[in-house]
Nucleic acid binder design. Sequence first.
RNA 1: GGUCGAUUCGUCUAACGGUUAGGACGAGAGAUUCUCAAUCUCUAAAUAGGAGUUCGAUUCUCCUAUCGACUACCA
Length: 507
Amino acid sequence: MNRRVRVRFAPSPTGALHIGGVRTALYNYLFAKHHGGDFILRIEDTDSQRFVPGAEDYIMESLKWCGIKIDEGVAEGGPHAPYRQSERRAIYLKYAEQLVASGNAYYAFDSAETLDNMRKEAEANGQTFAYNYQVRNQLETSLKLSDSEVKERIARGDQWVIRFKMPENENVEMDDIIRGHITINTSTLDDKVLYKSADALPTYHLANIVDDHLMEISHVIRGEEWLPSLPLHYLLYRSLGWSDSQPEFAHLPLLLKPQGQGKLSKRDGDKFGFPVFPLFWTAPDGSTAIGYREEGYFPEAFINMLALLGWNPGTEQEIFSMQELIDIFSLEKVSKSGARFNHEKAKWFNAQYLRHKSDQELGAMLLPLLAKAGINTTAERANKAVSLIKERATFPAELVDLTNYMFVAPTSYDEKSVNKFWKPENVENLKLMAKEIEKCAKIDEKETETAIHEWIVANSLSMGQLMNTLRIAIIGISQGPSIFAICEFIGKDETLKRINKAIETIG
RNA sequence: GGUCGAUUCGUCUAACGGUUAGGACGAGAGAUUCUCAAUCUCUAAAUAGGAGUUCGAUUCUCCUAUCGACUACCA
């Protein structure tokens, strides 16, 4: 069948979107755009208990920051609006009832307490309680009760749910684009709740299938945690008579905690020393978590890093733009096993992207940072300063520390460097060098360096010792880019001033 | 416990059933340099274990182990 590719990212607004969720969204997006299809954002807020205000906006802002463009969604609208399940509540009941009518589902009136007790009892006996074919006939369901009794209880206002009537013993044959063929026998599955009268909302399973069908979703790309419910979903499509238009499935490997065990979870926060969220997040209880954006990650670097966590094109290329990712992405190349996130590699990606930015871009980032530090300069000067140090930085915030000595003279001198190089004979020679520098009309990185170098050789002095002494005088520490580049940048007068000041200060 | 899934250097990963098992991050060494980075070169580092199929298994099958997911009127 040659149908239009339509995928959806369907998070529930129960908190911030963590990087595993962002990656799921990214793979959906890449797949859709690779095939010229649509990327849809659907909000699955059928759990009124766990709804978190602000989460939905957070999700949309995150996707926007990442450069993932939504074709249809809660904010964008679209032919299948609304895209928020709580606003679609009128749609679902009729499908649940249809399933009851066709004998694939039934009403159940058991109270939460009853089920809880049964669960506890089973546990006490070392067994696991499952609401399935073995027990459903003994419980308060429309399978046992007469039609009139059922109608009466519903009319009376009793709370009820509709459960799927899982076939007793049937092998469900499923195909997953990433995992291949999977078979599961229904005897191991239970009768899941599809709809609950308490809040007049469907559960995930029903809402998901109904909306995917109605929204003409062609491929469901989601996390591996959904694999166990895939047979239910297959059966739901069949029971609703939608098998022919059922989407294809791809279950993504999980993102694991950096150490220890388990999948990365929202609650991990920043306890590992790196963000698990794309953006800064303030939870309803007031707790906060750092985000990649605020840590100084570029969205392109973040996306590049995430794309390669569980997917690989099979070549040795590592740096990809969004468009390149779209061009070569394929689900077949997604790996099957979970990936542990590596913070060092993430930083490496960011450093790569930082150095490939233009001096103008980085200069524009530096300017306000300098201003904050009380340094005012021109865009031109900032651009030039940044060009000298950009391959030494990982994050834009580091740009200030790396360039501030180009704008202000050092106020202190690094002790270690001073002990190593600031020796009496070096200081004497530095004074002589200052005289040489004075002879130059102006300081030019190449010309002055050549001149000073020749002067050092002619006087049989040590290049290493003298250059570092000069470096301490100019920037206060034996680090940083070419010292003559810095001298050229600050100019002849400032260079001489700093030399004198250092001699006065250090002695 | 049950069901399902996964398993290649520390980490992310590559390898039509035939490679000295490749790359990247990180680590170590060297080169370069006025210093520190960067850069370049080099080094160490892996097919979970056991059977089987095959002329030949990282690759296919089975068993074991380990890890993970799921097992809610949550998604």
